[in-house]
Simulated scan of single mutants.
Amino acid sequence: MDFKPLVTLLAIVNPLAIVPFFIHYTQGFTLEQRRRTVTTAAITAFLVIAASALLGLRILEFFGISLASFQVGGGMLLLISSLNMLNAQPAEAKPNSHELEDGAQKAAMGASIAVVPLTIPLLTGPATISTVVIYADQARTWLQLVALVGYGVVIGVATWLALALAYPISRVLGRTGINVMTRLMGLILAALAVEVMALGLLKLFPSLGR
């Protein structure tokens, strides 16, 4: 079984990097509210990955986008994400200050912040979706596709564990420890991004392989 998709997804999602955001957004929450937020975020992360694996290629076909072009674009997005991680920032785009204020207001109004912004875009944004679609195209059997969806379950569990243990993790690792892990995952992601772009470019320009 190929575990490269799982390694790539873990590098992109990197739930540990979201721990400081989770603590920020759930300030003032009761223990029960935090538990609901953690569970909702984990389930949503799995659903985004599963939907991308099962429907992503159909959506590309609908819009007439070739997978080779999507691989190059997705690879560039992964490379940008890896550069963010090398600077100890989340792989996915960080909401701007107005979005942070809106998120806080929604939380104060009782709306769940588990889906937006914690899961989308901080955990599973465009980079995650494009990665899943690319690996879904490489699946040659239903078993491989099911395995890709299964990796979504692993990501969901990892997300649940990281957020459920957010406060202990924050105390043990500290900001410095989380930054070091984020940079290491960013380095791995950069190498994977180059590989994805190279495969796409070879499909678009076969002469490059000569």
Rank of each mutant, 00 (worst) to 15 (best):
P5H: 00
V7T: 14
V7R: 11
L9N: 00
L9Y: 01
A11I: 01
A11N: 06
I12M: 03
P15R: 00
I18M: 01
V19I: 05
V19L: 00
H24N: 12
H24M: 08
E32Y: 09
V38S: 05
A41C: 10
I43A: 12
T44A: 08
T44P: 04
T44R: 00
L47T: 15
V48N: 04
V48P: 04
I49Q: 00
L54A: 10
R58L: 05
I59W: 10
G64T: 12
G64H: 08
G64Y: 01
Q71M: 12
G74D: 02
L78T: 07
L78V: 09
I80T: 15
I80Q: 10
L83F: 14
A88M: 01
A88G: 07
Q89T: 13
P95W: 08
N96W: 03
N96Y: 06
E99R: 06
E101M: 07
E101G: 13
Q105W: 12
G110A: 13
S112T: 15
P117F: 02
L122V: 14
L123Q: 04
P126H: 09
A127Y: 01
T131H: 02
V132W: 00
V132G: 03
Q138P: 09
Q138K: 13
Q138W: 02
I155M: 07
A158T: 10
P168R: 02
V172G: 00
V172A: 03
T182N: 02
I188R: 12
L189G: 04
L189H: 05
A193Y: 01
V194M: 10
V194N: 12
V196T: 15
M197P: 09
M197W: 10
A198T: 14
L204Y: 11
P206E: 10
G209A: 15
R210M: 13
